[in-house]
Design a protein around this nucleic acid. Structure first.
Lengths: 211, 211, 211, 211
DNA sequence: GAGTAAACGAGACGGTACGTCTGGTCTTAAG
DNA sequence: CTTAAGACCAGACGTACCGTCTCGTTTACTC
């Protein structure tokens, strides 16, 4: 419907190309990190011409981000009625996503930020990637804020809490561990984060923060 | 004291070289970001041979980190007796440091992580840089934890607070803003962060957390 | 014929590149000898990327030899029916070729072997160049031997002459003069060489060797 | 006698340094050809500072030539009363000398000119080396010419022979084989060369050139 | 024996070219 | 119009190695 005659001309795009390319790119990234992601190599492994590559992803960075997006996937915030648990799941899921990227080209995974830093740099180099990524995280924050709003309304979360900051203090430390300190960012760390922000965040009558 | 006879042999290193090189490198970084940091250019501007460059910094990444270290400088945590104020200063100082880097090659400074992401990537590419950087931040955290300990002892900070996590929740969001969301990381943001973590963190009798 | 379909793929090589590069390289060699042959400079002058250079000539030495081959050119051995004259022309032509190379970067031209020695060294450094050069001279010798055979059959050259050695004794001294003694290698020298080898080389009845 | 007071001042040169350095240099040259001759490596192996090296040999080329001179040694022309034999010995000795150099960094020794070409190039690069080498060969030629003169006087060598050219036609082909064609240059080749130049070079009454 | 001159060891330094790598564009022919 | 193939441009990187320079040290001769 969209394109009747105008773009019906010529050879149609091979739909399988995307998959083959992203697979090849991920293999390289996984094997040796960003430094191992080589456009010529990707083209060869995917059985695709470089022209084709560049027609779909204008830049190596764009391709890398596309690969990462596929790996990271969506991180929805659940709503079971238990904020503590929902937030923990939310943060743990994000930590797990980043952890997968951290492992690329980094077998033991400890210490190095691995791919994550390179992707952040890629976003910094290209305004369009940056905007895309920031949009993604803005939407994620919107959902989280909505969840916190519901917690205020239904679960006794104090009304004077700065939701914006609370989310930053949950998500930020995870990135910080991965990108800077190299420390662990696993579920138990997520639990400690949630514990800390929710400690004293409920109105006394409704719920206690700590046993 | 460190090197009495062993390394007294041979022509001594020219102490001025470091300064000239780091200056030149910072000029380039400041002007055009990481992409503008060119080893040949640095050598030429500093009036130094490339061999000399590589004798002292084995890699362009190492040089960049050295420049950044000089720019970032030390961020001591003050101890005025007022934790809230000390923490705010501490965080605001770090935010300001990162902000300076973010501006490199990025006149308007909004949105992009600029140099910061590139430097994180550089640290991730070289295990030795990573170790160095992590050591730096580990020491910084040690100081901060010591400050929090004193707050527990003298200023009524609750004893059951997870100091480790509290620091992460102060520092982490700053990096997160700079590297990921592109949001502002200024003094007022630091104040909100400190406010949030100290809210309810004091024993009722001693000090009030919020007016 | 060699490559019908196999190498018909992809963008064909630009035939003009060779000319531009060899011209630029010769300019440099001519102006300052082997030391002045600079790959970056060649690339710039020829308006060509260094990758293109190295795709065609894997080494600076290979390029230099290619330039020399163009300068030296073919040295056919004539067949006018007069061996003495033909050999003299043959030797004088080779001497003139080498003389041109000797002058490169060596205005007065006396004494120094100039480029010739450097090219010999280049051939010695790379087995493939050595093989190529030796093949070239082997073909040249074949032609010369054929000419001597005809002289035996038609011009009364003695049948017991060692053609191989005779050619070496004509060509060898020219190289020796250029590479080692620094002496002149001109037409009159060629005449003396030919005179010496043909002296007494003819059967008495047919031709006299010396007036 | 040469230096009484002027250079008697200060610490005298260590006579053992030359030996150690030349040994080390020859080891490198022998092992990997001219490309393997590395001044830093020579200094280290000889247990000598680079300063000392350059005080004695102003250039790597000078050092290489010094090594070669030691290897090549003197090639006197004998005078047994039998020109044919003397010339053969003379040429065979030179061929053997060059053959030794050809083997450096060139185990099988066939084909490549090995060090010889590099040394010729070295001589071409430095006027002083060139002059020295040409002087050496000029003296050698003088001796050879003197021998031929005696052959004219005592052994019936024809008076109209061009001695200069005859020597070139004996020595030149040896260098030509080594530097250009890669062919063998052994005693039997020397015999063929001598045979050719002496064939018909004697006055009929006195001696026959060939059996 | 103190002074001095030069050789020496060690290693930083300047200079410069090399060959490599890789990102991204362009030109063919084929589908 | 897309695809494959591969030549091409651009430009930085890190390396290699030569020859110089700058120290501090050692070894003689000289006064």
């Amino acid at each position: 419907m969209t394109q009747n005659t105008a773009s019906r001309r010529g050879r149609p795009r091979d739909a399988d190309v995307d998959r083959r390319v992203l697979d090849a790119a991920w293999d390289l990234l996984h094997g040796g990190g960003y430094a191992a992601l080589n456009m010529d190599e990707v083209a060869e492994r995917a059985g695709v011409a470089k022209t084709t590559l560049y027609r779909r992803w204008p830049t190596k960075d764009h391709l890398a981000i596309a690969v990462a997006a596929r790996i990271l996937g969506e991180v929805p915030i659940p709503d079971t009625g238990d904020v503590r648990r929902d937030l923990t799941d939310f943060i743990a899921a994000q930590a797990a996503s980043l952890g997968r990227l951290r492992l690329a080209g980094n077998p033991d995974g400890a210490g190095s930020a691995g791919l994550v830093a390179e992707l952040a740099a890629a976003a910094a180099r290209h305004p369009d990637i940056g905007a895309l990524v920031r949009g993604l995280f803005a939407r994620r924050h919107d959902l989280a804020r909505a969840r916190l709003r519901r917690a205020s309304e239904r679960e006794g979360l104090r009304r004077d809490i700065d939701h914006e900051v609370m989310i930053d203090q949950l998500v930020g430390p995870v990135w910080y561990q991965i990108l800077v300190t190299g420390g662990p960012a696993d579920r138990s760390y997520a639990e400690r984060l949630v514990e800390a922000v929710l400690d004293g965040a409920f109105t006394p009558s409704t719920q206690r923060s700590k046993s």
